[in-house]
């Protein structure tokens, strides 16, 4: 193992050296590298293939993993940004195998097309952890999956609403709900819709008037909300399956001369909890947001440590997620948000 790891680090060094010109981040790890070569025995070498840096969420995700898998914590992380291309991810996994890393962490950009390369990893005896999104492969090909539970987020929203209505003494009243859905077929859309519906079914007084596709964008969310407001006179609750659509919905409601938020007559629920959503809650436009947690690093670290200790881990691991509403100290929470 000692020799093997020496080779791995050597190969990683070569690789970093090759790329150092193009990437500042890799330059950093390169300089860090030289110190490790002396103490490398104890470090766990992890290859992480990230999708890209398309959103704040993704950036927070990357940062969290990088911050958790540090040398102080006993890891040596080889990070590869695939820039939205599956070919790059496959290439990255192959290079991890060649470098004989101890673990591969893969955030697959699409669900299909991973069989061959994950089989190669398995043949090489390297455990693979899928992060964030699932890959459509045989369960044998990966050790575990770590991700967010969109269905639970939807369920949490439903439970929060039930609780809120009960406190407001409206639990017997007829509650009319509309949903601005995400892009049809997206994992988050399906999960959040199903999760909310499970709670909806338990409440006879809740009525889902309509669910419309808002494409996860603010402009579409606003347009769809305008239509819904014209169609239905008395909407009590708007469930927006991401924050951007919620911002659009708030604008549409205000333009129609209605009010929303804790002091208004329409309750707005939203998902994701980006920083701008906190501003909207502080401004009193949105009642509650349900988090989609990108900070996978600490949990990933825990999984890797237990695998290293020879323990078995659960095949499916969900992130802990929470929610935020206007009763909390939003100003100070906002400061701590990473995205």
């Amino acid at each position: 193992m000692r020799i093997k790891r020496g080779i791995a680090v050597g190969a990683a060094l070569l690789l970093c050296g090759g790329c150092a010109v193009t990437n500042i981040q890799e330059k950093e790890s390169h300089t860090g590298m030289q110190e490790i070569t002396e103490v490398d025995e104890s470090l766990i070498v992890v290859g992480f293939s990230q999708i890209g840096s398309e959103s704040d969420w993704r950036n927070a995700h990357t940062r969290s993993v990088k911050e958790a898998l540090t040398e102080e914590n006993g890891f040596y992380l080889i990070f590869e940004d695939a820039q939205q291309k599956q070919e790059n991810q496959i290439k990255a996994v192959r290079s991890f195998i060649l470098q004989e890393v101890d673990y591969i962490v893969l955030a697959p950009i699409v669900e299909t097309g991973w069989d061959a390369v994950l089989q190669e990893a398995k043949d090489a005896g390297i455990p693979v952890i899928l992060d964030d999104r699932l890959a459509d492969v045989d369960e044998e090909l990966y050790t575990c999956w770590l991700g967010t539970n969109a269905e639970r987020e939807g369920g949490d929203a439903g439970l929060w609403l039930a609780d809120y209505l009960e406190k407001a003494g409206r639990d017997e009243e007829k509650i009319r709900i509309v949903t601005l859905q995400g892009t049809t077929g997206a994992t988050a859309q399906i999960g959040r819709t199903n999760g909310f519906h499970k709670v909806l079914e338990q409440h006879d007084n809740w009525e889902m008037l309509e669910m419309m596709d808002g494409d996860f964008t603010q402009a579409k969310g606003q347009e769809v909300m305008e239509t819904l407001l014209a169609k239905y006179e008395d909407i009590d609750v708007v469930v927006c399956e991401n924050d951007n659509m919620a911002f659009g919905a708030v604008d549409a409601i205000r333009e129609a001369g209605r009010t929303c938020g804790p002091d208004g007559d329409i309750i707005i629920l939203s998902f994701d909890a980006v920083k701008a959503a906190f501003d909207a809650m502080i401004a009193g436009d949105i009642n509650a947001v349900f988090e989609c947690n990108p900070l996978h690093g600490p949990k990933l670290e825990k999984i890797l440590n237990s695998l290293e200790a020879g323990e078995t881990v659960d095949k499916i691991q969900y992130m802990e997620e929470t929610y935020f509403d206007t009763t909390m100290d939003l100003e100070s929470i906002r400061e701590t948000r990473a995205y």
Binding site: T184, E210, M212, G214, V224, T227, A230
Partner: peptide, 12 residues
């Protein structure tokens, strides 16, 4: 577009 939206046809 507006008509389809009013008719409740999903944007998809």
């Amino acid at each position: 577009d507006t008509t389809l939206l009013a008719l409740g046809v999903s944007t998809a």
